[in-house]
Design a protein around this nucleic acid. Sequence first.
DNA 1: CTGAAAGCGCTTACAG
DNA 2: CTGAAAGCGCTTACAG
Lengths: 347, 347
Amino acid sequence: VNRIKDIALKANVSVGTVDRVIHNRAGVSESTRERVNKIIEESNFVINPVASSLASKKEYRIAALTPTSIKSEFWKLPNEGIKKCIDEYKTHGFRLQEFNFDKFSSVSYVDAFNEILKWKPSAVIIAPIFFNESLKLTRELEDKMIPYVFINTEIKNVNNLSFIGQNSFDGGNLAGKMMSLMTRENSEIAIIHFHKIKDNHKAIERRIEGFTNYFETYNSSCNLSIHKIDANNAFKELAVQLDGFLKKNPNTKSIFVPSSNAGKIAAVFKKRKISQLNIIGFDTTSENISFLKSGDIDLLIGQQPYKQGYDGVKILVDFLINKQIPKKRYYSSIDIIVKENVEYIDV
Amino acid sequence: VNRIKDIALKANVSVGTVDRVIHNRAGVSESTRERVNKIIEESNFVINPVASSLASKKEYRIAALTPTSIKSEFWKLPNEGIKKCIDEYKTHGFRLQEFNFDKFSSVSYVDAFNEILKWKPSAVIIAPIFFNESLKLTRELEDKMIPYVFINTEIKNVNNLSFIGQNSFDGGNLAGKMMSLMTRENSEIAIIHFHKIKDNHKAIERRIEGFTNYFETYNSSCNLSIHKIDANNAFKELAVQLDGFLKKNPNTKSIFVPSSNAGKIAAVFKKRKISQLNIIGFDTTSENISFLKSGDIDLLIGQQPYKQGYDGVKILVDFLINKQIPKKRYYSSIDIIVKENVEYIDV
DNA sequence: CTGAAAGCGCTTACAG
DNA sequence: CTGAAAGCGCTTACAG
């Protein structure tokens, strides 16, 4: 047996005092604090978190700042992961408030952030899609001593507690490897980049760098070219652009889409009955998955977005309850997803 | 507020009675049982598991029957996953006893199983490597009403609570796809099968079927052949066999190893300075990983063995604590692992 | 600075 | 068949 009571007995103090020492609360003389701490260590005492949560009326208010899944289906899974983890720890006093923004509008991001500050959270989990805005707003969290973690997108040189997401360069590099396996020598490979969509710009640039790097490193005979598509992802607009692209680049054999929009492109090609192109894209949106299954997309790189949300909250839980200091960065896995294993992937 | 107390108040009974109803204990008249149940439903009451575990002195004794990691490194990860999950639920009364056996000895399996029966577990998690022995022994668990789950290896038509593991056929099929991407047309592809190692025989057969199926389905021009190697995996014995194999099959371009022994084979070829062969194998043993990194193995199919152990125990936890009925089968993901993403894989 | 007591939401004998 | 009371290992006012 090793309860607070046992420690108290050994130290000749009351359980209240032991509790104060354990939680570093004020009002204990230095001498007894030391004595109690020594006994705690010697006895290898660890607090019973179950009893602790039950007795404590503490509430942990977690705010989540993520894009709404309505405008961007990708975000459904991280949001679900966040909710699931909070749900598992609700008996420990965890409450979630979601603050969703439109990932195409930095204004909505700033608005949501300000709502969070008003709500006075204990900690926040953020998808910091907008770089400059985030720099300013995270500083306010720091002033108020509110810990925050980033998921999916990393901003460096700020005091986030942790980051969970993919290494974009290595994601692109892996896509490059898979592309080189799928494409013959001396092929034309096009990288199609929607440059009107500004969110997550850095990650996409890094994916392109990684992709290009693979072909350079292995001295490939393939010819890579970047094509900036001046369209959002509406079918009609996109079709016009892609028709133009194909006319100018009739020898294209393979297409790399460094964003989650591969499905949009596949839809156009399918309509045009063009099926001999190899397409590699990112992320398991339902559209991407369905084109992967039909064979119109050949391969997707996955990043387990559900897990990013779940793990982001879990890091906060462990930090708030057990004072566990997380690593500064946890990399998500870089999954290779093809028709043959898509039924089994982790989300 | 929605506590047992509140239900008791509404039903005009004591909390003790509500407790009896919740847990389906005897000693409640049918009429009050019905009344209380109705109020529980109407109030959407769910028990507080934290308070429940604290008050209850119940112990859940979990026995794990898995191969010792000493003789088979693969099993280190499942065993760690099992331990981790138990550790997370120790404050809920979970205790683990490991019963390890030598995966090359069915006798040690039966012995360990008998030890388990003596230990009187609440539930058991089993890697049922030996088919016939398992049939008989699981029946004894059923007689004693002890629930059990299988991990990694499935035995069908018995009353296991659940199974967590990979679909072997689809694992082999995926390996076939990746092989066909890596190998030129009209190549000789060898399937190397250690037929002296009898454990997990069925899974390996199914992987070979899946692999072969891929090439048949796509009408490949490659020529597949199965080579039964009459050796255990000791380097010297294996080298003799492989030398003979290469002499007889000098045009072999690619090798598929449907077991976790790809590294053993790669070691021989490396020694012989043969480096132009494509090798695809299974599982992320440290040997396999190191040859993957050095380029002597080209690709591995992973099955997240740590997660198999962890999830297997988690299923028992949810079943014993929350009476949650699991699915009969949970398929592990089928991961494609290459040099470029090996740093990021889930274990 | 320290202790005694009540309470968190359950479960478990025990009494009737 | 049912209830009252003690207790699980903590935390939280409150009193001194």
